[in-house]
């Protein structure tokens, strides 16, 4: 908390901190990318892409707050709704490689 206060006193705005937090979430996404690429099984990849999608929703929401553009939340909502579709599509495909589609 004192760090934030010091930062605000030093001339940084809340938006800067939010952007920094978004950058941190993006670094986490890069870490999760390892599991999506490497992931020994397809289930690992499905989970990884699901986590990446949720991560992106958070990044988009933080960006909307940092850039003070509330309408950008629309994109986060669309991703939240459609990431679910991507997850069920990939997970159903993983069973018998599309045989159950």
């Amino acid at each position: 908390m004192t760090l934030v206060d010091a930062g605000v006193a030093a001339g940084y705005t809340v938006a800067d901190f939010l952007l920094l937090a978004a950058a941190g979430f993006t670094l986490l996404a890069i870490g999760m990318l390892y599991r999506a690429v490497r992931g020994p099984t397809m289930q690992d990849r499905v989970l990884a892409v699901n986590v990446l999608g949720t991560n992106t929703v958070v990044i988009l929401a933080i960006l909307a707050a940092a850039l003070s553009e509330p309408t950008f939340l629309d994109i986060a909502l669309v991703y939240a709704l459609l990431n679910f579709l991507m997850a069920i599509a990939i997970s159903k495909f993983t069973v018998e490689r599309g045989g159950v589609l």
Binding site: T71, F72, D74, I75, V78, L81, L82, F84, L85, I88, A89, K92, L101
Partner: peptide, 22 residues
């Protein structure tokens, strides 16, 4: 607000995909 016919149409089609998968 951001969006329009193209994006909305794609989302509505995606809903049909969702129903088809379920």
């Amino acid at each position: 607000s951001p969006g329009g016919g193209f994006q909305g149409g794609a989302i509505m089609a995606a809903v049909v995909f969702m129903i088809a998968f379920a």
